[in-house]
Amino acid sequence: MKYFSKAMIGLDLTEMDDILIEKTIVFLKFLGIDKCYFVHVAKNLAIPQEILDSHPELLAPSDESIEAMITEKLKNFNFPDHIEIEVFAEEGENQLETFLRWARIKDVDLVIMGRKETLEGNGSLAKGIAKKAPCSILMLQEKRPPGLPKKIMVPTDFSDHTELIYNFSERICDDLHAELVPVHLYQVPHGYSKTGKTFEEFSEIMKENANKDFKKFLHKNNHRDLDCHFVLNEDHDEGKLLLDEAHKIGADMILLGSRGRTKSAAILLGSVAEKLVMVNNVLPMLIFKKKGETVGFFEALFRI
């Protein structure tokens, strides 16, 4: 099944590029990608001295030199010949704005970014893109071995918003013959003690209620019967709780959806998803966003 046609892959001219290219190749066929834009965005495209020392033949203008380096790297990785490729280097004072502008210009369906675990870098560009990109984002982590997922965790809250990502998750899991594991965070209300019940007793009540909501969600939307994992949130960081649960269940990918402030702002991440992006640099993560937002709204994102 074809999920995405055009993908933009962000490169930073570090060792992470090799890792990202190798892992991207694994996903190309499954995701249905037939065109890849490889882009490097920097405030200054001057080639670092250490690269010039290693490649004294680089005498062309820096953007052309960088594009040539990336193109040669793709050849070394035997990037599939049937995939159309375009490579470009761009200079921009605001790297995030420049990258997102090109994502809109090229009308890409998917942005692929790397997340570093031990390599130098804070991942601020990748996090910003995850928050504001006008399309879906696939984040591939440094240390995770290349490969398609077999157990996919989907954070869910049983809302209408969840329906979109749930449908997408089921399609992906069917195609991959992978296991789909819904996960829901629930809390005990602060006034529980007034009921005369203990924290543990009211926690069980909230869990049972959440399970009923989950069953209603499945029945209302004609989904298959699955077991949802319920995680008690005792005022902890939701992102870390979800990541911990992913490790506990042995998930090898997290799939989540964007959640806008309004229906017209559906390309923005919700607060829980944003926290998960912040803490997760160990598991591949696909953030599904529905394309088709207006240019005016997209431009307004840069003022947020």
Rank of each mutant, 00 (worst) to 15 (best):
E117Q: 13
M139L: 15
V111K: 03
V108E: 06
G121W: 02
S136L: 04
R104T: 08
R115T: 13
K143M: 11
L138K: 09
F79T: 05
N94K: 12
E91M: 04
L125F: 09
E86G: 00
E117C: 06
E97S: 12
S136G: 06
A89R: 05
V108Y: 00
N94A: 12
L119V: 07
R144Q: 15
L138M: 10
K116N: 09
N122R: 13
Q141E: 14
L119M: 14
K131G: 01
M139T: 11
V87F: 04
S124N: 12
I83S: 02
G114D: 02
L119F: 10
L148F: 08
E93T: 13
S124A: 15
N94E: 14
Q95M: 14
K106T: 10
S124I: 15
E142Y: 09
A103I: 05
T98W: 09
V111F: 00
A126P: 03
I129Y: 03
P145G: 04
A103Y: 04
L148Y: 00
A103Q: 01
P134W: 05
F77A: 10
R144D: 10
V87I: 11
D81T: 14
K106Y: 13
M113S: 08
M113K: 05
L140G: 00
S124L: 15
N122K: 13
E97N: 11
V87H: 03
M113E: 10
T118N: 11
L140E: 07
I137M: 10
L138T: 09
G92E: 07
I112P: 04
D107A: 13
K116D: 04
R101G: 05
K75C: 08
C135N: 07
E117M: 09
L140K: 02
S136Q: 05
